[in-house]
Design a binder for these strands. Structure first.
Lengths: 126, 126
DNA sequence: TTAGCTGTACTATTTTAATTAATACAGTTA
DNA sequence: TAACTGTATTAATTAAAATAGTACAGCTAA
């Protein structure tokens, strides 16, 4: 399926999430397709099953995969998910920046103005 | 000057940067004012001088302080100017991100909540 | 039902990174 | 020169992250 480098500086579970993400994004793995079980993939890569599970859990948290106890782990239908993840990333960034601006005594009202302006601008286009 | 909690979960050097930042922002420490030397503050807090130095270096990196080898560490009088420029940069970033989030149909209200939360959080600290 | 799959939870171990400390060096000032 | 100042380098300690061991519970097919 793919190879990992146990000697690499980047954690094994992260190499796995990256590879699976890549395969999903490239369309090699299709929605509802079953992923290898934690144990079989662990055997194939000669690492511990729990490491696979950690990777799968992370992939599930990010919406790439859905795990069904007793049945297996499956590729999730993305289109929606990608947007959701993108929105999450953007929101986290905004949170960080706003926190800092508020800390620097920028009044919340002036920040809210930015939001209003963005909304008005959008309405104009639809 | 201030106290630290060696038993706290937050690192000592971070407690120091936070406290010094606070004192500068509150105007207790004024521009060009000399901060305690790494050794004297280390003695006062009964911790290692290098820990103070790490804090001071971080404060310098963020523009709060300027260190003059052989002379001492001083409150940077550029803070206002730097802040204003910093605020400008941050605001531009926020504008860009908010625009994109609004475009992705994230309701403005949920973004305003982020602002409110940041303000509440800040009030808690003062 | 049972045998053999599946994912999961919990704990312990190992490994890695962050934090703090020890020590020596170099600039400044009186 | 003596007593300050910040700095660099390295070592020791501490905390966190990553991985592994083991046991449990759900699903499915013979």
């Amino acid at each position: 399926m793919f190879d990992i480098d146990v000697k690499s500086r980047v954690p094994i579970y992260e190499q796995i999430t990256e590879n699976v993400k890549r395969l999903i994004i490239q369309g090699v793995l299709l929605p509802e397709e079953k992923l290898p079980s934690v144990r079989s993939l662990a055997q194939e890569l000669t690492i511990n099953p729990n490491t696979i599970q950690k990777a799968y859990r992370e992939l599930e948290r990010e919406g790439y995969v859905i795990s069904r106890p007793g049945k297996g782990s499956f590729v999730n239908d993305m289109t929606e998910t990608m947007n959701r993840e993108h929105i999450k990333t953007l929101t986290e960034e905004v949170e960080r920046l706003i926190k800092e601006l508020v800390f620097l005594d920028v009044p919340g009202e002036s920040l809210k103005t930015i939001i209003d302006k963005a909304e008005q601008e959008k309405e104009g286009h639809e």
